[in-house]
Design a binder for these strands. Sequence first.
DNA 1: TTGATATTGATTCTGATTCTCAAAATACAC
DNA 2: GTGTATTTTGAGAATCAGAATCAATATCAA
Lengths: 158, 158
Amino acid sequence: MHKGSSLNKEVALLKRYLTKNHLKLTQQREAILEAFLKVDHITAEELYREISKKKRPQMGLATIYRTLNLLCEIGIGQQRHFDDNRTIYDNVLHKKHHDHLICNKCEKIIEFESPAIERLQEEMAARHGFTLSNHRLELFGHCIDWKNCRDWQKSAGR
Amino acid sequence: MHKGSSLNKEVALLKRYLTKNHLKLTQQREAILEAFLKVDHITAEELYREISKKKRPQMGLATIYRTLNLLCEIGIGQQRHFDDNRTIYDNVLHKKHHDHLICNKCEKIIEFESPAIERLQEEMAARHGFTLSNHRLELFGHCIDWKNCRDWQKSAGR
DNA sequence: TTGATATTGATTCTGATTCTCAAAATACAC
DNA sequence: GTGTATTTTGAGAATCAGAATCAATATCAA
């Protein structure tokens, strides 16, 4: 079973990490990585449904969690807690690092990037003797369309 | 039992909000607010222990959660999820808004503020048609003392 | 191919937060 | 002040995401 042979650099990265740590490259891990690389961000539950319905019906949810955490350790993923309950895993390779602009009234989430902010972040970190590996920036507010926001009437009426 | 009469502006704010929404100012809410205003940030559990041991042994944990969420709605508090599991409630009035610099190796958390970054954030928000109410910036990395970090040996040895 | 070791999946467990509901407290009209 | 409608409380149950357990299975290196 020589699989697709399209072992790109992420799979290579995974392999290297696994080997270095005496871990094993399993079909599950490969399938999860493959699916994860296709998305921008996803929850464990979504990824579970995605994979178990399309590829491996017998895949266990625990394996999803374990592997997503693995990907976060490698640096391919990053955990992010939105509001309450939802934890999403960002694919940090999918595009350049980006930050989020989140509307409190509707569910709109805009991704943006600002090299200027990143530069200042590095500066602040250096000033405090830190070397940065990553960061998380979330701006909350309301968007210009707030009159059309889904939750506006509900929250205004409270 | 005319309590202290030191109803400062935060209690007044709480009162105004409660009245406006046909809610009631209870002794529990007042006690929780009072305790919350003394700290910089705290978890629900910590606040529960603090209050139930020192002031009101019969205080229910659910009331702590309910009231903390109330304070967040008013804008006195802000929820923040660290790593996994821990959710802390920031007292946003306690000091000027600050961001966090978090060491991945030890548990060190440094608070900092950067008006320059804030300014750029406003700029980005405006560019996308957003009006900001608050934000959250967390920088992850390792501190200069990483050789002394508590978890360093553990994680290096993995 | 073998054997030591790591991983999986099913399940259970955990711990944080929310929900439930009868009893108690509060606000407001009088 | 008093009465009463309404909200809140506390105790415990329910919920839920995520982690832990463990026997069965897959992987890797020799």
